[in-house]
Simulated scan of single mutants.
Amino acid sequence: MSAYQTEFLQLALANDVLKFGQFTLKSGRQSPYFFNLGKISSGASMLTLSRAYAQALAASGIEYDMLFGPAYKGIPLVTAIACALAEGGRDVPYAYNRKEAKDHGEGGTLVGAPPKGRVVIVDDVLTAGTALRQAVQLIRDAGAEPVAAVIALDRQEKGPSGLSAVQEMERDANIRVVPLVTVQTMLAYLSGGAADDATLAAIRAYQAQYGVSA
């Protein structure tokens, strides 16, 4: 496990991003864990998070020219990640979109650097993938090339098609999806003493029922 993955999971537990219990998901499934990156709400926490994203992007080996953050959660993320990359010596432009088009001033839905070249999208968790698909289309419509998306967690969970949300996105949008951690990474970390045996057993049972092959 990489150092940035360990630091990210420590951050997730310390900030209640990752919680255990019984949670009803949008799909109706009863999950033994819940992940909410919106719990990151301080400067220090966002700095740690953005550094993890930057390191995951560097480790992926993906070649890119700029970043894009889908509204709304992607907006603070893309800003912070661009700062973390600059801190590491790489200054890249970034952009994001508005949910509603602006009808005055400069107008339009895109804010920031004009999309061009190879673009990496940054977001939190891929569920239905609606925001990411919209981002892919926005980038292509602007004449740029979306090459990848970096997300916090891959739940590795089957959808109606039998594929995970990540697998569907890679197939449909023809981009690579890079998670900071997967459920299997999470389980490996939790098995080191960060969760009790009952929690570990519940997550493993849930993945056995709903998970896809890693």
Rank of each mutant, 00 (worst) to 15 (best):
K116T: 12
K116I: 05
G117L: 05
G117P: 07
G117R: 04
R118T: 02
R118S: 11
R118F: 00
V119G: 00
V119Y: 01
V119M: 04
V119W: 02
V119T: 09
V120P: 05
V120D: 10
V120L: 14
V120R: 00
I121M: 11
I121L: 13
I121S: 01
V122H: 01
V122Q: 00
V122K: 01
V122W: 01
D123Q: 03
D123N: 06
D123G: 00
D124N: 05
D124C: 08
V125G: 07
V125A: 08
V125K: 04
L126D: 01
T127I: 14
A128Y: 10
A128E: 14
A128S: 13
A128D: 13
G129L: 11
G129V: 13
T130I: 12
T130F: 14
T130R: 12
A131T: 00
A131N: 01
L132G: 01
L132Y: 03
L132E: 02
L132D: 06
L132T: 12
Q134P: 03
Q134Y: 07
Q134A: 12
A135T: 08
A135I: 07
Q137E: 15
Q137H: 05
L138P: 02
L138H: 15
L138S: 15
L138A: 14
L138C: 10
I139H: 01
I139D: 00
I139N: 03
I139M: 03
I139T: 02
R140Q: 14
R140K: 15
R140M: 08
R140E: 15
D141I: 06
A142E: 08
A142C: 06
A142Y: 08
A142S: 12
A144H: 07
A144K: 09
A144T: 08
E145P: 02
E145T: 13
E145R: 08
E145M: 09
P146S: 13
P146T: 11
V147R: 04
V147H: 05
A148T: 05
A148G: 07
A148L: 06
A148Q: 08
A148W: 10
A149N: 10
A149P: 04
A149Q: 02
V150C: 13
I151K: 01
I151S: 03
I151Q: 07
L153I: 10
L153N: 02
L153M: 11
L153A: 02
D154V: 09
D154R: 01
D154S: 08
D154Q: 06
D154H: 07
R155M: 15
R155W: 14
R155D: 04
Q156C: 06
Q156M: 15
Q156W: 03
E157F: 02
E157C: 07
E157N: 02
K158N: 10
K158H: 12
G159N: 05
G159E: 06
G159D: 07
G159A: 10
G159R: 12
G159W: 08
P160Y: 03
S161D: 07
S161E: 06
S161N: 06
S161R: 14
